[in-house]
Design a protein around this nucleic acid. Structure first.
Lengths: 355, 355
DNA sequence: TCTGGGCGGGAAAGCGCTTACCTCACCCGG
DNA sequence: CCGGGTGAGGTAAGCGCTTTCCCGCCCAGA
């Protein structure tokens, strides 16, 4: 689910009569208590006779219990909140699939919120989810290099946890609690090693916004690996743009305009890599013969573009599943951190550097 | 949001003390009524002095109102429910984007539920959303050829509408209320015309599940256009499979195995077309030189695969936006139906039939 | 000085449900 | 024949909030 705070405005006030529990009880000629008991199979026994009368009334009135009233009365936290950058981004779709699977297994409802990479909105969603009395909040997706924001967010999360809420994050170092950490740095290193193995020297990097910690991590790994092989990564060969397809195309164009003889483009996620591929095709640059392209994440479409994308795989579904498991298992006192390693996937978009 | 019915089991019962409105009131030394008034800016004036005391208490206690209690007290329907087949499918991501935009503009919260093409689950979600007291329910995605299911669904929707709920559907004829209808049949015709224009005779169709009305509509349009040009579409050249990438690959393989000399593959959505493309590439069949491939929907990635997909565009975002507008506008007595037409997008995956 | 009107604030009645607790009838053993 | 146990059902007290209604105060006007 994507949410947006509902304001008081624009409320509809329709509805002559939604059937309530009392309506059912009245029609069945029993007390609300009895009706409630048969409707949600309480442990307290009710005679067959009454049970049937109640069930009949339920179908006749098309009664559906008011979920809010139930929640209030039970003071029972059922749902789990998830805050992602954007579910329509395959990276998050995959993570969400993992989250969903575990949540479903445990009979939990999931509320999914899109922050669209706006820290402000992320903060709002934490409040909103808290108001919804969710049992746990899961934050997926890169954190931000912004100390003020981090402090604020941690404050809110702490308040939530203090009242028994559980929190798990995916890929954020800033939070001190339970976390699932994909090895972004290690993935960057794999990328760097491959680049060196293939003999690339003039490498352009197509990066997402530098405020994202994911970007700096991947970059750091890449730099480290290159340095190991005596290569440098000058700042002017890194272009920061939106973390999506169009950003990838744009950054690639800028890179190529500045230095037409690059032999490799390393995109910091697959969407950007697809944008890079599109731009190269538009400019009739042969891939990988003249320029090799690398992605990151290995989202499903990566294998289907042409040339199929060489990329660094992150176990996205697994990450989601683990995070949900952590969030739902009250266990362990100390914070638990699970690291998941990256893996290089060689396909057709990268080859040896032309000489 | 994706939901799954939360069972009573597996509830957590944590939480020593979530601050409540009374806590805030007590700490501020005012009545709950006053606290409530300042917190959600009631029209009733409150002295600056008290207002400040309350606000201070709110921040000190990190108070967040209990959304369920608010909803209950206001008996105000805020959210809107959306049932789609699968948000991670770009077709629905796009529609959802449109829904979201309008909902956000009107300050509405969206609850998104994935039915994963399971009619049973669709029914359950209608109940669930009703229980959540949503102001409207939007059903997106093909209906099913299943009279029993349709009757059941319409019954539930009618009950919901009877109590003031609003319903809008996207691409379903079975419901009699407000609807946004993409012109699937017309799109099929466009496809057929293009196929004829390019001189294709031996055409294989890669279709999704035949229980989906979308499939039969597109197929009907395609058939009609072919018939106009004196061509037939024999049943054995239609393969029904899952409505996704893998289904597309599978159906294409079956088609080619049976008739290696087909000159065109018409897939009934882009995901399937991408699967077809992948299979053809794997078999080293040149596209479009030997076989042309057509998609349907024009989802964003269609332009980025290679060869770029020739497809039939549906205004997905627009469809979502219109549906939400209909759902949120109580207006008109009679049911309103908005038709949106399809458009052929020529790219590189289709060419003249080889001779 | 007295009255009426306005206005800020509180008391309390719900919203629809769950559940602890109580009642009442019945049945058993002593 | 009676006391107490048992078990089915009802009563009512909330869950946390909003909102109507009312009260008391202050000031303007007579």
């Amino acid at each position: 689910m994507s949410l947006v705070a509902a304001t008081a405005a624009g409320a509809t006030r329709e509805g002559a009569g939604v059937a309530t529990l009392s309506d059912v009880a009245r029609r069945a000629g029993v007390s609300p208590a009895t009706a409630s008991r048969v409707i949600n199979g309480s442990s307290k026994p009710v005679t067959e006779e009454l049970r049937e009368r109640v069930l009949r009334a339920v179908t006749e009135l098309q009664y559906v219990p008011n979920a809010h009233a139930q929640l209030l009365a039970r003071s029972h936290r059922g749902a789990v909140g998830v805050i992602v950058h954007d579910v329509s981004d395959p990276y998050f779709s995959e993570i969400t699939r993992g989250l969903q699977r575990v949540a479903t297994d445990q009979g939990r409802l999931l509320m999914i919120c899109n922050s669209y990479r706006d820290p402000e909105r992320e903060l709002e969603y934490v409040e909103l989810l808290r108001g919804q009395q969710v049992a746990a909040i899961i934050l997926a997706g890169s954190g931000y290099h912004d100390a003020d924001f981090t402090r604020l967010l941690n404050g809110k999360l702490a308040a939530y946890e203090a009242t028994g809420g559980r929190v798990a994050v995916i890929g954020r170092h800033e939070h001190s609690g339970d976390a699932v950490m994909p090895d972004n740095r290690g993935g960057g290193e794999l990328l760097g090693q491959e680049l060196c193995r293939l003999g690339h020297e003039r490498i352009g990097v197509v990066a997402g916004p530098r405020v994202l910690t994911t970007i700096t991590d991947r970059l750091a790994g890449l730099r480290a690996a290159l340095a190991d092989h005596g290569r440098e990564l000058p700042e002017h060969r890194i272009r920061y743009a939106d973390f999506d397809r169009d950003g990838g195309a744009e950054a690639t164009a800028a890179l190529l305009d500045a230095e037409p003889d690059l032999t490799a483009i390393a995109a910091l996620n697959d969407s950007m890599a697809i944008g890079a591929l599109a731009l190269l095709r538009a400019r009739a640059v042969p891939v990988p013969r003249q320029v090799s392209v690398f992605g990151f994440d290995d989202m499903p479409i990566a294998a289907d573009v042409t040339p199929a994308l060489t990329t660094v795989r992150l176990p996205l579904v697994e990450m989601g599943a683990r995070a949900m498991a952590l969030a739902l298992d009250p266990g362990a006192a100390g914070p638990r951190v699970e690291s998941l390693s990256a893996e290089l996937v060689r396909r057709d978009s990268a080859g040896a550097a032309p000489r």
